[in-house]
Amino acid sequence: MMTIKQVSDLTGVSVRTLQYYDEIGLLKPSDTTAAGYRLYNKASLETLQQILFFKELDFPLKDIKAIMQNPQFDRLKALRDQRKLIQAKADRLGNLLGLIDRLLKGEEDMSFKEFDMTEYFSALEDFKETHLDEIVTYWGSMEKFDEMFETMKEKESEIGQLAIKQYGSIEKYTKAMKQNLMDFKGTMDRMNSLMDSSKDYVAKNTELHKKLTSDRRKDPSSAEIQSIVKELMDLMRDTLNGIDMGDNYWNLVLEGYTTDKAVREATDRIYGEGASTFLANAYKTYLEKHQLI
């Protein structure tokens, strides 16, 4: 057994962080002394080690907890997946360091291959090799997965542009995808649940938008209007159920209501003239107040 101070000294993780992991149920001590001091055994250290691997891959603590506490969590499989993802990260950083070194030497190098979708497609290739059963379960056959994969490669440029626009960078887009792959079954279950509830979601969403735009003379920043916006946000959050939509997702929503001619015309046609501008102002007020943009 090791005390929390000994674990901190061994791992470099602060005592306060270890205490916080205990508080949120991520890493519980294996025992406590009569005086209430935390004690950790070998199994606890292995769990902590696994947590640190996930953190190195920039997984949020809530996702780490969900993955590791899943009854189907397989430690060895997770280690193999983590090794591949960390290797891909190391390779990419190595390429970037090489590019920086060449530039520091005064060489002219207009290479942009370090910023392409290679890491994204590499992670999908690794996933294909290690998740045959899950691919067949959710895609129907390996052939259908391969067709999807080839289509994505053909549209690499469009996917890359969308990734940068919605997630801020290809790296962040790839990170979100890797997190989904690490908990693939959970991700697919959430997506299937989203599809199953799509009719109810559309009906509720439409109802709230009609309520929101019923009197467009009202102040979009008023408590009444903002309360309806909150209902819409809660509905969307619950429906997405933890799916990472990217840092710029809400900016794109606002952009649609303000600059996308097709979105504005459709919105005004459904909810009345000026609805797109009213919705943009209402959403913008809420998103800025809650620091979501």
Rank of each mutant, 00 (worst) to 15 (best):
I4V: 12
L76I: 09
R190G: 00
G12F: 09
I24N: 02
T174L: 06
K65N: 08
A78R: 09
L99H: 12
H131K: 10
Q161L: 10
S227F: 00
A34K: 05
F73G: 01
K153H: 13
Q87R: 13
T187F: 15
N248P: 04
D101F: 00
I293W: 07
D238G: 15
K199M: 08
V263S: 08
L103R: 11
K155S: 13
D101L: 00
T47W: 13
E46W: 02
T259P: 00
L279S: 03
F115Y: 15
G36H: 01
S197R: 11
L39T: 03
L57N: 03
K289E: 06
W139A: 06
G140P: 06
F112C: 07
L254N: 08
K155I: 00
P60Y: 02
Y257C: 03
T151L: 07
A163K: 09
L61V: 12
Y257N: 01
Q6F: 04
D244S: 13
D189I: 12
Q82A: 14
D91C: 01
V7A: 05
R102P: 01
A88R: 07
K113M: 08
L57M: 13
I159K: 09
K155V: 01
D31E: 13
E158M: 14
K185I: 14
T174Y: 04
K89R: 14
E125K: 13
M68I: 09
D183L: 04
A280F: 05
R264M: 15
Q226F: 00
V253A: 10
E107F: 06
V136R: 02
A223S: 05
S198V: 02
D200F: 07
A275M: 04
E171Y: 09
F54D: 02
E231K: 11
L232Y: 08
Y21L: 05
K128G: 04
D22A: 03
R237T: 15
K261H: 11
K55A: 03
T187D: 10
E56A: 12
Y120H: 14
G106L: 04
K284Q: 11
V263I: 12
Y167C: 09
L240K: 12
Q226C: 02
I135W: 09
I86E: 01
D260M: 11
R83Y: 14
R102S: 14
L57Q: 08
K261I: 10
S141L: 11
G160N: 09
D146T: 01
L235P: 03
K155W: 04
S197Q: 13
L57T: 03
